[in-house]
């Protein structure tokens, strides 16, 4: 009986399947090339993975409430660009940091407003803002890739980006863990989270129970955009330069990570931890292919297979778990 119960528990929580695949992938690449899990490469992995994971967690929370955001990749680029350009214009770096993040909140709010006010699918609304925001990022930067004035950003880099001596982590990783915990509380332990789930699962029912479903969505759009922008700033502080073309395709990777982590495209299902695992899985896969000296262009192929596999197995595991009475 206990085995049945544990099986049901695991089967109804697809993030565990993702975690298993993640471990298998990590070990496989390690078997192919032991440098995959050496100190240097782990440092790389734990630097780049949290950035996409932040975006994926935002995407999952938004998907749970029944909406999508395709503009996250563009927001990821624009926030860094705005921060660097403003700093170079002589504006205080901390102020530029704040302005860049506020701008992300505004973009999230615009995404929500277009979607809700005009009742159009967020898929389309944010496809529109994806192009617009990307365009702005490129126009602002013009031709050259601006770099940071180093002294100006001393504290920002110390707080958000510098490697922590003797570890594989950067400062951004601490923030990432902190934010992950907050998001777990938000989605899984708070009333706002419960409203997000019910809005995504059955909007009419949530409304009838007095939930302001528009506010739920606005909040999650803003949160999603904010996390994408913050990830962009983490990257810029790390690379010390802004590239307006970064993050192309991140919106789809974030959705892929969410789905691999168990989120449903129909809303009402998904976890923060699942998104995190999905994102790490994608980045480990990407990096693992490089380390295995395989053609990196197989990355997309592998993501595609994983995605299809994940959706099929999630649906079926859920069905099996549902059929099991405990």
């Amino acid at each position: 009986m206990n085995i049945r119960k544990s099986f049901k528990y695991v089967a109804s929580r697809p993030e565990f399947a993702a975690l298993t695949i993640f471990i298998i992938i990590a070990l496989t690449f390690y078997a192919i090339n032991e440098n995959f899990l050496n100190f240097r490469n782990l440092r790389v992995l734990f630097t780049i993975s949290p950035e996409i994971a932040l975006i994926a967690m935002g995407a999952t929370i938004l998907m749970v409430s029944g909406e999508f955001d395709l503009s996250v990749g563009s927001v990821f680029a624009l926030s860094g660009v705005v921060m660097v350009v403003l700093t170079n214009e002589g504006i205080n770096a901390h102020l530029a940091f704040t302005i860049a993040l506020l701008m992300c909140l505004v973009i999230g709010y615009i995404n929500a407003t277009i979607t809700i006010r005009f009742g159009i699918p967020s898929f389309i609304a944010t496809l529109g803002t994806m192009f617009m925001v990307r365009s702005i990022a490129i126009v602002i930067v013009k031709a050259d890739f601006p770099t940071f004035p180093m002294e100006e950003t001393y504290w920002l880099r110390a707080i958000f980006a510098n490697p922590i001596p003797g570890t594989i982590f950067r400062m951004s990783f601490i923030w990432f863990i902190l934010i992950t915990l907050l998001l777990i509380f938000y989605l899984h332990r708070s009333n706002y989270g419960n409203w997000s789930y019910s809005t995504g699962a059955n909007q009419a029912a949530a409304k009838a129970m007095g939930v302001n479903t528009n506010n739920v969505k606005i909040r999650n759009f803003v949160l999603c955009s904010f996390l994408a922008g913050l990830a962009g700033i983490f990257m810029v502080l790390r690379t010390r330069a802004a590239f307006p073309s970064v993050g192309v395709g991140y919106e789809l990777q974030a959705i892929a990570a969410s789905v691999i982590g168990g989120a449903s495209l129909f809303g009402g299902i998904g976890t923060v931890f699942g998104a995190l695992v999905g994102a790490f899985l994608l980045k480990f896969l990407d990096n693992g292919l490089v380390m295995a000296r395989l053609d990196v262009n197989w990355f997309r192929f592998a993501v595609g297979i994983l995605l299809i596999f994940a959706v099929i197995s999630n649906t079926n595991l859920r069905r099996i778990a549902n059929k099991m009475k405990d």
Partner: peptide, 16 residues
């Protein structure tokens, strides 16, 4: 239906 199918009974009971 006045319920969110993908949520537990407990969560449904207390929505809002």
């Amino acid at each position: 239906s006045a319920l969110a199918p993908t949520l537990s009974i407990a969560r449904n009971l207390f929505v809002g």
